[in-house]
Design a binder for these strands. Sequence first.
DNA 1: CATGAATGAGAGTTCATTCAT
DNA 2: TATGAATGAACTCTCATTCAT
Lengths: 222, 222, 222, 222
Amino acid sequence: MPKDASVSPSPRKAFADRRRDPATKREAVLKTAAQLFLEKSYGRMSMNDVADRLNITKPALYHYFDNKEDILLECYRLGVGLIEEILNGIADHCGTGLQKVEAFVHSYATVMTVNFGRCVMRLDEGDLTSDARAEVRTYKRKIDRRLRSFIEEGIADGSIAPCDSKIAAFSIAGALNWICMWYEPDGALSPEEIATQFARTLTQGLVARKRSSRLRVVFKEE
Amino acid sequence: MPKDASVSPSPRKAFADRRRDPATKREAVLKTAAQLFLEKSYGRMSMNDVADRLNITKPALYHYFDNKEDILLECYRLGVGLIEEILNGIADHCGTGLQKVEAFVHSYATVMTVNFGRCVMRLDEGDLTSDARAEVRTYKRKIDRRLRSFIEEGIADGSIAPCDSKIAAFSIAGALNWICMWYEPDGALSPEEIATQFARTLTQGLVARKRSSRLRVVFKEE
Amino acid sequence: MPKDASVSPSPRKAFADRRRDPATKREAVLKTAAQLFLEKSYGRMSMNDVADRLNITKPALYHYFDNKEDILLECYRLGVGLIEEILNGIADHCGTGLQKVEAFVHSYATVMTVNFGRCVMRLDEGDLTSDARAEVRTYKRKIDRRLRSFIEEGIADGSIAPCDSKIAAFSIAGALNWICMWYEPDGALSPEEIATQFARTLTQGLVARKRSSRLRVVFKEE
Amino acid sequence: MPKDASVSPSPRKAFADRRRDPATKREAVLKTAAQLFLEKSYGRMSMNDVADRLNITKPALYHYFDNKEDILLECYRLGVGLIEEILNGIADHCGTGLQKVEAFVHSYATVMTVNFGRCVMRLDEGDLTSDARAEVRTYKRKIDRRLRSFIEEGIADGSIAPCDSKIAAFSIAGALNWICMWYEPDGALSPEEIATQFARTLTQGLVARKRSSRLRVVFKEE
DNA sequence: CATGAATGAGAGTTCATTCAT
DNA sequence: TATGAATGAACTCTCATTCAT
């Protein structure tokens, strides 16, 4: 069974029919805008660009969104939603701290190859009103705290070698966030490859040694 | 006591006297602009902002630079110059690949806390003309290649555990580049702390270990 | 009574209604601009001048034209179109070379009293981009070649006395083009008078005479 | 004996020596400015252009001229002076009206190939203040009146066929003035050629012919 | 005298946003 | 409902002109 029928294959088509779910149209606007934000940045993207790409007129956009920033904020929120899902999924998941970090890295890296996810870390917060900016920042801090807590869990349960969790989190988050800067859909690395490779690489420096390294080998041999 | 003319304490003072070293003034413009680029982004910073902060009028800026983009490009170049110094310093430096990577991380992290350095990785290349963009991109590729070559050197000389040098370089570079996004001059972490901590943390995952590495190789041979 | 929508009595009225034929508005802009080009020259006329005279705001002009030069070029083209009609009309017209020249002078002089026609010869080509300038120049050369060919026809068919067709064409064209420099709508000479008088005067020097030409030689020999 | 020693071969050299006749420098500015006015038009020529071409600084220009328009006006005056010489020379010269017209055409055509002369007829009066414009216009009217009087003299003395002197003058003046629009120093036609050819061509239509003129009068009497 | 530096006024252009239909 | 038209505010850049040295 296909995942769902609500998937709009192309945002352009969403406006082809007059009779169409307004929510679908709203979504189409967001997808197109997110794409353009990443292509040209918020500042250089004009409302006309969005309208043109969707084959609608500019004021039509104002039916679905109050203003340009509104679109931007919605993109942030959608991206943030994706990340939140990850975090919740992992928190529920039981396992060692190291395993949680590894799972986090894998999922987060994947999100960094999805447009809405990329928007969260790549777009300039300065384009937001201070209220909206505060909202986004709050959320980003939350992500950081979560990652840090996973690391600390790992240190506590012995799966991660003792280290400065703050710095470790900054390193990992930085490496991950930077993905959204260089990732290209048609590039040499697929999202899955990126996720897998980063999951391995970024946890390598954390892993507690003595036996753990041997264990890993054993684990892999099975 | 030396007059110490090479230090411009405040860019504002550089324009106090009408007769003053033009180079100093040019530099003052660049410093102020770089600061503003980081505060507000290229697009949101107006030439008036720069002028106001320097207590001069807008057209006066055009004595020192052809246009806004010219200022931007010059900031890129200055930042790139800082990084180049690092690379050259390290290349001369003899030592293991691992040591080179460590030295690189330390210096590069430091540069990421200097405004011109931050500009290189934080500002949006989309604001540059295609010629200038090509120039900057060429340089960025060079940095990546250098880092990768250090890693490969390390793998060859046994100081670094075998790994995918491309992914490793992406991880390290990402973590480092991201510094310029969160670093704040008045923040909790000083540049020196950041550099030292990152140098330790980011090389931790690379270091070749006695048996573990041998085991992995054996594993792969099977 | 016909509504007579093809006649726009005053360019100002074209923008009175929000909903109005866009073509009419475009035309109104062109008429006003042409008028101002002639009054103040391209360089001294600002987009605000046009807007003010039409009782709209400056940016509204950009709905109808890409930029200032675009308006200028369109004026050139309209003027050129007027001249082209003449040329085509005469070419079809059968008659002696002299008659063709006479017809040309009459019509061309008339065009030189019409704003768009005046623009072609009075405005400074230096205000055009090189592409547009090339286009205009090509056309001007074409006019000159046509006139010259009429003269040569006349020499061939005996209606025009042998002469240097290049110089003759330059003289005639010069006299005609200069009209657009001194003509004033409210001046003493009406377009029709100008056309008639110039048609007679400018062809006088060309007409082949039975004996008179011989007489002149005799006269000069004395 | 050479015509004079004051001829400055190149305006650039005039400023090479510090010790140099200020009048020479002033003249050099005017020559350069006239050249640039013709190349780029008054509006597009900047004071910097003049300064650059003379290898001096902008404010230096203000030592010799009050402002930009002052330079323009001086160019007009110099050109007007050239034309005035012609007129005076011809007025003194005795001869028939036709001969005077012929002489006028020859000399005037020559002046239209000299930069200062070209300025008079080619530059836009709209760039002048109303006072200066009035001065120039007064002078232009004077030229026209003189030419017209020559023609009328010719009609009176029988050397020129009866005609509307106003229209004839407009034709001749137009053809002559237009020279300054198409003349190029390196073009196919030399000033002397132009002058000679125009002198012949433009008087051809005026010359009174034995019977033809009489016939026309008779015809009109009927 | 002559200059480098600076300015004020104004130009064209863009764009998010809102009328009015 | 959805659109073409219009706006106001902002921005980059230019240039004649004038200080201050």
